[in-house]
Amino acid sequence: MIEFRSVTKQFPDGTVAVDAFDLAIPPRKTTVLVGSSGCGKTTLLRMINRMIDPSSGHILIDGEDTGSLEPVKLRRRIGYVMQNSGLMPHRKVIDNVATVPILGGVPKKQARDDAMKLLDTVGLDRSLALKYPRQLSGGQQQRVGVARGLAADPNILLMDEPFGAVDPIVRAELQQETIRLQEGLGKTVVFVTHDIDEAFLLGHQVVILQKGGHIAQVGTPAEILAHPANDFVASFVGADRGKRALRIQRVGDRDVVVDENGTPTGVLQP
């Protein structure tokens, strides 16, 4: 369980990225922070592993105030996956994956053996282990990034727009993989994105943010779609248009679902 208690972040230049933010992130579920750029979602994520320190307020992990923990040690027990993978270009894939365990004092040989198994976990061929990151495709690099995030077997995995820079087909693949991994490993995932479809697909809990880190609505995807808290949320999730504004059309003895333009998208099962 991760708790934000009245967390505020003001940057030296005066920008208030996050203002009196409160949120409880349930364990072993995926929570997605979603909003347009400048809504403070990345700042919120980076405050969890103290890449950024809050100006005021507290962040608790399982009841422990992160402000009292040593940042370097804290970061080693929290997985982190970022956009553009952030892999070390001078380390081979296997060493990138083994980074955090080795920093934590695991013997090199064992860390590498474990890293090999992780390549299987994230669906990468073991033959890639001795290549350098730049020899891999964007999607493969992102998988290595996920493997690296999981290497120290952290309870918490932070993902900062991890699939923003890969093409739509690979992104869809990686999203399914993330769902599978989260279900299989039972990690607490905190995921940041600006893509509402991605948020609804991955999130057990979705947090829609407005400028300044204000929460517009928190809920399951179904709750948010069914009862948008206000016009901002309704328009952000697109509840009133396109493929989310579905109607039922009776065709013979079946109910066909059509979208805003009358294009059929499926059939209601009895």
Partner: peptide, 28 residues
């Protein structure tokens, strides 16, 4: 690359480790 430095910090490199194992080799 600033992303790489950020990632290194996020992984849990201390400032000293980050200099010797990331910054110096990458400026090679």
């Amino acid at each position: 690359d600033k992303d790489v430095l950020q990632a290194a910090s996020a992984m849990g490199y201390s400032g000293w480790q980050r200099f010797w194992r990331v910054e110096l080799p990458l400026s090679g």
